[in-house]
Design a protein around this nucleic acid. Structure first.
Lengths: 341, 341
DNA sequence: TTGAAAGCGCTAACAC
DNA sequence: GTGTTAGCGCTTTCAA
């Protein structure tokens, strides 16, 4: 039942097997410096035959260089974060840098822990979702002395760099479209927001811009946990029971929006004539719904790509000039659930 | 624009600041050995004031222990893998072990690269999705001398341990239900399968068991890329145009199944009377659909948890007796799209 | 083009 | 309870 744990191979083993000094073996394996073709081949052969896998721990300690980039995100179950990861991956793949993911579950204490753990591996850079952090987290980030990119939100003061959209502005933009379309009795549904700062900012932007048009949110409902699609149905049902006169429903994410849409269609409600709908994120899923939901693109892939590019540039040249705050512009997609004026 | 990169703090800095030897500082910071309360507090204070973050690279090299567990999965955009990760996380959280994720995009060459990179960090264990690997990958896994758990598929010979369901059996189980319900003209839709061994095995199990009932797949269609929900619609449309006499559609995953269901409901097709439907995975999303789709649970959370438990047990005690192959049983959920006999 | 020596920051093992 | 010594497996630096 026990698997024998053989002593892992070292450079020395390859050195002895090939009759070449450890130093030269190291050079061959890293493609550094000039090594004669003959030596190179001897070394490569020996390494392959032995099945040698270099020890990056020792390498990193000796060279003081680590090809790791920490990525700290709140969740993996919300599809938006894997998408950001994809963008990061795409860019890092060509740079020799490797992302290492940490998940915080939206908890500041856990974020502290994750950041601490990551920094203890001395990564070359760190990408962190959100621009709000505990004092302790900020202090660690500042002291780390590596490129830090805060992503997905630019409403605040970044530790170092920030890439993302303004969620307040996104909320305002949607509010303006809602007003322009002539909707007046507006209901809001979303996650409980104490810790989801981006959802909160969208809500604030929305209410602020609606207020300028002389309108207040007529009803609101929050959820946490469970199947978002099902929650969208439930909340929509509950809200329309309570406030049957609503003519517009804004959902803080696409999944609950999709649930709401399916619910209304089931009921034979005419969308967008009787009730208009809009959501947020622009997830791919929406493409398959019976009716296209109005939403806003949160630029997830581009956020990831840009953040990774900044890190890569700064790793390559610590003095590189990079734009400190990159604001991306969410595009509204009107779909078929928002009356056009 | 440049951020000064201060020399990172070392144990020595804490030692000097606190007037305690490096060794004792190390002991305090790791909660090892007996240290007087007074010393401990002096050290902790100094460490906190300086903002010291231990260097795990040096620690790992010195102690020959790394609290990392590699997790190799094909994709992050397919929700099933984040769910497995959740299970792994839940268990590892209490053990001091940390998952490190690598993504292969279903490509064997990339899997090799990812495994190689991971092993070069000398993790304490490795969890790999799938039981099919290139010879090179297998060789590395065998030679690593650490606990290896292959997950999500047990139809094959594991390198070390395996946890998951039998996809062949899952395919057979569903076929038996389809036959029992009296469906006869069956269409299959799924991803292109050359590299998705689990989907292929489900397909094989399905056809095999149908054959025993004297039935052959009447039509089939494969896709890759794009929004799965939308693809489900498109494929269903295409297939029913081509083979209007089908009375059952089997989808190799829930997303395309959901797309197909929405399509049929749009068209006013009576499900499951006119056409029966079934899919695979048991994702949460299905809860919000207008009609509950028949599916099978792939036990993702439990797979993750069990794999992590095995790794944790073997890390704690390399001689620990663990079950080599853990077969979980997928539960059929009949939903409302499969006629009951 | 190759090799030898020194040391990265920490911990195991042993002394006191 | 605390300190000292000797590496961990590599890479840097310098010499040949």
């Amino acid at each position: 039942m026990t698997r024998q744990a053989p002593r892992p191979l070292t450079l020395r083993d390859v050195s002895e097997a090939s009759g070449v000094s450890e130093m030269t073996v190291s050079r061959v394996l890293r493609n550094r410096g000039d090594v004669s073709k003959a030596t190179r081949e001897k070394v490569l052969l020996a390494a392959k035959q032995l099945g040698y896998v270099p020890n990056k721990i020792a390498g990193a300690l000796a060279s003081q260089r680590v090809n790791l980039v920490g990525v700290v995100i709140p969740s993996l179950s919300n599809m938006v974060f894997p998408e950001v990861l994809s963008g990061i991956n795409q860019v890092l793949e060509d740079t020799g840098l490797q992302p290492v993911v940490g998940v915080t579950d939206y908890l500041p204490e856990k974020e502290e822990k994750v950041i601490y753990e990551m920094l203890s591996w001395r990564p070359s850079g760190l990408i962190v979702a959100g621009i709000e952090h505990s004092d302790a987290s900020r202090a660690m980030l500042v002291a780390a002395g590596i490129p830090i990119v805060e992503i997905m939100d630019i409403d605040g003061t970044p530790v170092d760099c920030a890439v993302g959209i303004s969620h307040r502005r996104a909320g305002r933009m949607m509010a303006q479209e809602i007003l322009k379309a002539g909707y007046r009795r507006i209901g809001f549904m979303g996650t409980k927001m104490p810790l989801d700062h981006r959802a909160r900012k969208r809500f604030e932007g929305l209410t602020e811009a609606l207020a300028k048009g002389g309108i207040e949110i007529a009803d609101q409902e929050f959820y946490s946990g469970g199947s978002a699609l099902a929650k969208g149905r439930e909340m929509t049902d509950a809200m329309l029971q309570r406030s049957p006169d609503l003519d517009f429903l804004y959902y803080s994410n696409d999944m609950i929006g999709a649930g709401g849409l399916l619910y209304l269609l089931d009921r034979g409600v005419k969308v967008p004539e009787q009730i208009g709908l809009a959501a947020f994120n622009g997830v791919e899923l929406l493409q398959g719904l019976p009716q296209k939901l109005a939403t806003m693109d949160s630029c997830r892939l581009e956020v990831g790509r840009t953040a990774a590019e900044i890190v890569a540039a700064r790793v390559a040249d610590p003095a590189a000039m990079v734009q400190r705050v990159v604001e991306l512009t969410p595009k509204i997609s009107f779909g078929e659930t928002l009356r056009r004026s």
